[in-house]
Every structure is written in structure tokens, then in C-alpha cells.
């Protein structure tokens, strides 16, 4: 996938979440956004996902301008988005969380939607939990349902906003494993993460975002192992300070 952002700016009141951000990625399969919290990763993902419109600057993903009001809905329908806090619909079962968008947004027949949902939930090891409500599932299970919902309609790009930040290490590992599998199967992914080991193993392109700007970006191995910028070095030494980096992907 191809991403071009030029002077992208997004303000929340007086806070500049994105401050004339520039990012040009010619061809990435999995793009990982890393960097300190509050640096603008989530905002960039929301702009990429068409959930938020930038105040100024230009932005295209694979030649499409997602934030534009007239195209945003169609763009959101083409892609999948997963949130840190799961955000499943709490009044619907795991199964219905997946089938409802398939039916109402993507025009599948109810029978088709059920078949697809069964496949996705099965694939993520949720076969025995499909008729439970989100409140009856563990965090890891909820996030796997979220992942199933996000990929059910075969998204062009899967956007993941810190998909494991609300999970304990064991659940983190199980969700990262699934994301790794999706990437290996050819799914285009843009994600923000604090799991450096995972970013190194799965992403082919990494961008460090701080204070609303891209500090450094490039091939994952290059940025993570031989950072060129002082800011990147400091960030990486901080997150790696306590021993092992995050759990490795398969």
C-alpha cells in the first residue's frame, strides 16, 4: 500500500495532535507506528481510517483521500478498524457483532453473514463463545471478536490502534499471534503498538511519531536496530530498558 501525507495538521482545541506531519511510504505491507503516548499515533490512524478529517494538509492512501466527507463512509466500508478498548457492541452477541455489519453494510444475505461470521470466529478460536455477550468474554476474547469483525468483510487495509494495550501479557500474545497470521496471509495492516518485538517481526515499515510529527521512518529493521535520530534512540532505549522487548510474533 502507498501512503502520502503532506503537512497534515489536526488540532483538538489548542492541542496540535498532528503538527504538519509528512509521511511518504511507497510500498508497505505492514506499517507500524511507534512512539510515545500522546504523540499523535491514534490521531493519524483515525485520519487514515476516515474517522477524523484533518484540518489541513493533503493525505492519500492508495490514491484515495479518506478524510474527505463525501468519500469517508465508502472508505470506512472498504477497511477494517480495531480499537484499543475493543468497543464491541455490548447489547449484541459476539456472533451478531460480526454478522450485523456484514448484512447491513456489505449487503450479505443473513445466511451468508452467518457463514462468514462462523468462519472468522472459528479461525480465531472462538467457536464455543459465539453466542455470548461481550461482557461474558475475557479481554483477549473480546479483542479477537473485534478482529473477526474487522476482517469479516475482507478489508483492503486493516487498521489497528494499539490492539493489545488493554490486555495482559498472555492475552496480548494470543492477539498478536493472530495479527501475525493475518499479516503472513497477505493482509495489509497499519497499526500503532508499544510491542517493539512484534513490530520488528511483523512490520516491514516503521514510523516513529512524536509531538505530531514523523521523527523517523523506514524499513523496520533499519529504524529499530540502527535508529538515525537521537529521539528514536532515546525512545527505544526507554521502552527496551526493562529487558526483553514485547512478545515475539510467530
Amino acid at each position: 500500500m502507498e501512503i502520502h501525507a503532506a503537512s497534515l495538521t489536526k488540532n483538538y482545541g489548542t492541542l496540535a495532535a498532528l503538527d504538519a506531519l509528512d509521511l511518504h511510504v511507497g510500498d508497505a505491507h505492514v506499517l507500524a507506528l511507534i512512539g510515545p503516548s500522546g504523540g499523535g499515533k491514534s490521531t493519524l490512524l483515525r485520519v487514515i481510517g476516515g474517522l477524523e478529517e484533518a484540518d489541513s494538509g493533503t493525505f492519500t492512501v492508495n490514491g484515495v483521500q479518506p478524510g474527505n466527507k463525501s468519500t469517508a463512509l465508502a472508505w470506512r466500508r472498504r477497511n477494517g478498524f480495531l480499537f484499543q478498548q475493543f468497543n464491541l457492541f455490548p447489547h449484541l452477541t459476539a456472533h451478531r457483532n460480526v454478522t450485523l455489519p456484514l448484512e447491513k453494510v456489505h449487503g450479505h444475505s443473513p445466511a451468508d453473514a452467518v457463514r462468514i461470521a462462523d468462519e472468522c470466529l472459528d479461525r480465531f478460536g472462538l467457536a464455543g463463545h459465539t453466542h455470548k455477550l461481550p461482557a461474558q468474554l475475557s479481554g483477549g476474547q473480546q479483542q479477537r471478536v473485534g478482529l473477526a469483525r474487522a476482517i469479516a468483510a475482507k478489508p483492503e487495509i486493516l487498521i489497528l490502534d494499539e490492539p493489545t494495550s488493554a490486555l495482559d501479557p498472555e492475552m496480548t500474545a494470543e492477539v498478536l499471534e493472530l495479527i501475525g497470521e493475518l499479516a503472513a496471509a497477505g493482509q495489509h495492516i497499519i497499526l500503532s503498538t508499544h510491542e517493539m518485538g512484534f513490530a520488528r517481526a511483523v512490520a516491514d515499515h516503521v514510523a516513529l511519531i512524536a509531538a505530531g510529527k514523523v521523527t523517523e521512518h523506514g524499513p523496520a529493521a533499519h529504524v529499530l536496530d540502527h535508529p538515525g535520530e537521537e529521539l528514536t534512540r532515546r525512545f527505544l532505549s526507554k521502552v527496551m530498558k526493562f529487558g526483553l522487548p514485547g512478545p515475539a510474533a510467530p
Binding site: 480499537f83 468497543n87 447491513k104
Partner: peptide, 21 residues
């Protein structure tokens, strides 16, 4: 707000967000 985000992310339009979420 997370519910609204989630509903928009799965591609619901405004009437659908109101009705289903």
C-alpha cells in the same frame, strides 16, 4: 464515544448508527 467510533468504523451510516447501536 467509543460506541460511535466503532459504529462508524464498521461502516454504518448515521441512521444505521442510531438504529442498531
Amino acid at each position: 464515544q467509543g460506541q460511535l467510533d466503532s459504529a462508524r468504523a464498521v461502516g454504518f451510516d448515521r441512521p444505521q448508527i442510531l438504529r442498531y447501536v
